[in-house]
Simulated assay, not measured.
Amino acid sequence: MSLSTRLDQLHAQARRNRWLWLFTILCRILLAVGFIPPGIVKIMGERFTVLSVNHPMGNYLEALHHTGYYYTMIGVMQVLAGLLLLIPRTVVLGAVIYFPIILNICILSFAVRFEGSRLTSPLMVLANLYILCWYYPAWKHILPFNQPAQAGRFPGWKELDTKFPVKFFAGVAAAFALVVLFAVYGNELMPRNTLKECQTQCEDSANPAACYTFCDCIHQEGQPLDDCLETYYKAGSP
């Protein structure tokens, strides 16, 4: 059996489950809600957050805010992707537009250790990937498989299997738990959103004095995250 045929069979099996249909609709709605409001903020030309410019993410967003129509264009694409996801006939196009934007946000969030989207952005990436997999027949022709894909009719609502997919949702719960654990415990030190919030982690750190220096380096001096982390680790070296 070819890989293309096997994927077709797996997809057909998933599309016959009513719970997965409902989960897909939920993902589409949540992803749209996650992009449309912040996209409108950008279109209106307003600053996206109230973070200090000394904060790594605040510095980035401040620079982005001053890029003029580029900032507006990002907002337009976010709103467009969100709206397309809500329309059944344009879901695939919306998901394709959505993916590179949310992947960029996810990588940025981890790079600057931003708590505001450190948890939500990877979950949104996973939800976006799920939607792309759900609509696999719409784009599978671009894959380098020797055997051409066979188009099939999607089952109607009354034809759907009502059996609850325990293994699938257990996997969803496990993925959610892993993302939460990494967001909370993935890094020893976080800049947090304010100086006061940053300092709350210092008492439990391996080197409280170095931690306070790190927080001052970020929020008072506005130094790059890597430089502040280097200072912290050097202070903890014997």
Results as ranks from 00 to 15, higher is better:
Glu46Lys: 14
Gly75His: 02
Cys202Arg: 05
Gly222Leu: 03
Phe168Lys: 00
Trp21Gln: 09
Gly34Tyr: 01
Asp161Pro: 04
Ala170Phe: 02
Pro37Ala: 09
Leu143Asn: 04
Ile102Gln: 01
Gly186Ile: 02
Phe164Ala: 00
Ser109Met: 14
Ala138Thr: 11
Trp139Pro: 04
Thr72Pro: 03
Thr200Ser: 13
Tyr185His: 14
Asn146Lys: 13
Val184Thr: 12
His66Pro: 06
Ala149Asn: 05
Leu3Ser: 08
Pro191His: 02
Met73Leu: 15
Leu103Ala: 09
Leu3Ile: 14
Met124Asp: 06
Cys215Lys: 01
Cys228Leu: 07
Leu64Thr: 03
Leu85Phe: 02
Pro137Asp: 02
Val172Arg: 00
Gly68Ser: 11
Pro208Ile: 07
Asp204Ala: 13
Ala235Glu: 13
Glu62Gln: 12
Asn59Pro: 00
Ala210Gln: 11
Thr200Lys: 15
Glu188Asp: 15
Ala174Leu: 15
Pro88Phe: 06
Thr5Phe: 04
Ser117Phe: 05
Arg6Thr: 11
Thr194Arg: 07
Cys133Pro: 00
Ala12Cys: 07
Arg18Val: 08
Thr162His: 08
Glu115Cys: 02
Gly152Pro: 00
Asn59Trp: 08
Asn187Ile: 04
His66Asp: 14
Gln223Glu: 15
Trp134Asn: 02
Tyr98Asp: 11
Val91Thr: 15
Val179Arg: 05
Gln150Glu: 15
Thr90Met: 01
Leu189Asp: 00
Thr200Phe: 07
Met44Gln: 15
Gly152Arg: 15
Ala149His: 05
Phe35Met: 15
Arg15Phe: 02
Asp226Gln: 13
Gln78Ile: 03
Tyr70Gln: 11
Leu119Gly: 03
Leu129Asp: 06
Gly186Cys: 01
Asn193Leu: 11
Ile102Lys: 01
Leu10Thr: 06
Leu119Pro: 02
Ser121Ile: 05
Met73Gln: 07
Glu230Asp: 14
Glu159Asp: 14
Arg89Cys: 06
Val125Asn: 07
Gly116Cys: 06
Val125Gln: 07
Tyr98Asn: 14
Gln199Asp: 10
Ser4Tyr: 06
Arg47Val: 12
Arg153Asn: 10
Asp161Trp: 03
Arg89Lys: 15
Ser205Cys: 08
Ala183Ile: 05
Lys140Gln: 12
Ile29Trp: 10
Glu203Gln: 13
Glu203Gly: 11
Pro137Tyr: 02
Val50Arg: 12
Leu3Thr: 12
Val50Ala: 14
Ala175His: 04
Leu195Ala: 09
Asp8Cys: 09
Lys163Tyr: 01
Arg89Tyr: 05
Leu195His: 08
Val96Met: 12
Thr24Arg: 05
Ile74Leu: 15
Tyr233Glu: 07
